Computed example of a mutant assay.
Amino acid sequence: MKKKIAYLCGGLLLAVSGIAAADGLRGEYNGYPVVQVVVNGKAVQGEVPGINMDGSTLVPLRLVSEALGAKIDWNASTSTASVTIAALPAPSVPANPPETTPKSKEDIEKQRLEERVEAMYAKVETYIERLPVIREKIRIAKEFYDIKKSNQYFVAMHEPYWKTFEDMYLSIMTDTSSDDLNKAKLLGILDPEFIKLLDAAHNSFSYYKLSVEHFVRYVSLGQSQFLELYISSYANAFEEELKAKEMLEAAAQGKNR
């Protein structure tokens, strides 16, 4: 019975296991070159050797299967050879993996404060990003006046236009006055320079708004001092804008260190 199942196409077996190899050796078996069978780096041999038949490697099924710890059965009625490989043990799982370790109340509180501070910095960043938009609108309005002698673009920047910026600033100020943010300051989560950063951003906004008001007065009253005030306010606004951007970049670099 063993002889009936002694050989199986070596190409199929090797493709499945990936751990059996055959090397050519001297000698023949029934007119075919004998090959050495290696399983998991160990040479194995049985009653019947592996052979090379017309370019295909054939190895004993029982030899390789048993070397792998598998069980082999032969069903004579169906001419079927069955190979059963023992199941590998399931990998052990730690009872309490590090990633599932419950966080302490202090850690949870600190994480919550960090998230609030991040959200607040995001608001300030958005606020600062709008300053160049205001500056560009004022520049265009001034160029239009120089060409057309009309201050219609300055007049369009009235109170409803500024309200969005004022509301955003008040929202940030409300955050900074909360107990949570005071805790964040004590824990070193909130940059001590944050208030200065916010002040610089709001000063820039206020100066830009003031420059528009001065120019509108200059046009309506024709008094040169308002034109001078427009120029100085615009220059101050730009300086505060640059300061706010530099402080925001410094804060971002500090968080990344």
Rank of each mutant, 00 (worst) to 15 (best):
I128R: 01
L210A: 09
I189A: 03
R112K: 08
S206Q: 14
K103S: 13
S178F: 03
F205E: 00
L242F: 00
D199Y: 00
F165S: 08
L186W: 09
G55F: 04
E241A: 06
V35G: 08
F205H: 02
V83A: 07
A141D: 01
P192R: 15
Y169T: 03
F154R: 04
Q225P: 06
V93K: 05
Y127M: 04
S79Y: 06
I72Q: 05
D146Q: 09
S150Y: 07
M157V: 10
M247I: 08
E166K: 05
E240R: 06
N151E: 15
N256H: 10
E241V: 07
S220Y: 15
K243Y: 04
L113E: 02
G254N: 13
A141N: 01
I172P: 02
V216L: 13
A122G: 07
R257D: 02
Y121K: 02
A21N: 11
F215E: 00
R135M: 08
V38L: 15
K137T: 06
I108V: 12
T100Q: 10
A76I: 11
L242P: 03
P97A: 07
P192W: 10
P60I: 03
S104K: 05
V35P: 00
A95H: 06
K243V: 05
E240M: 14
A95W: 04
N236R: 12
F165W: 14
A252V: 07
Y208H: 03
P91Y: 03
L8P: 02
T57M: 15
S220Q: 15
F238T: 07
D23W: 06
E240T: 04
M120Q: 04
F154Y: 13
A237G: 15
N236T: 01
K209E: 15
V37H: 04
G18L: 14
V59Q: 07
A86I: 04
E109F: 06
S77V: 12
H158F: 10
T126W: 00
D23H: 10
L13M: 11
E239M: 14
I147V: 10
W162F: 06
V124A: 00
I147A: 12
S77K: 03
S220K: 15
E228V: 12
N236P: 05
I195C: 07
K149H: 10
K163C: 07
G31W: 08
L170I: 08
A87M: 10
E118P: 03
K255I: 11
L229T: 01
N96M: 09
S56L: 05
F194G: 00
S177L: 09
Y29I: 13
T57P: 03
E239C: 04
I195N: 10
G41H: 05
M1C: 12
G24E: 11
L248C: 06
K103C: 07
L58M: 12
A251N: 00
K183N: 06
I138H: 02
A184F: 02
L197C: 09
G55K: 06
V64D: 02
F144N: 01
I85P: 08
P98Y: 13
E249F: 05
I128P: 00
S77C: 09
A87E: 12
D199Q: 12
F194C: 02
L181G: 00
N30R: 14
W74G: 02
F226S: 11
N52V: 01
Y161F: 15
Q45N: 15
K123M: 14
H158Y: 13
V35S: 09
F226L: 10
P102G: 05
A43H: 03
D107K: 09
A90S: 11
N256Y: 11
L58C: 06
M1S: 12
P33Y: 13
S177C: 03
S65I: 08
K4W: 02
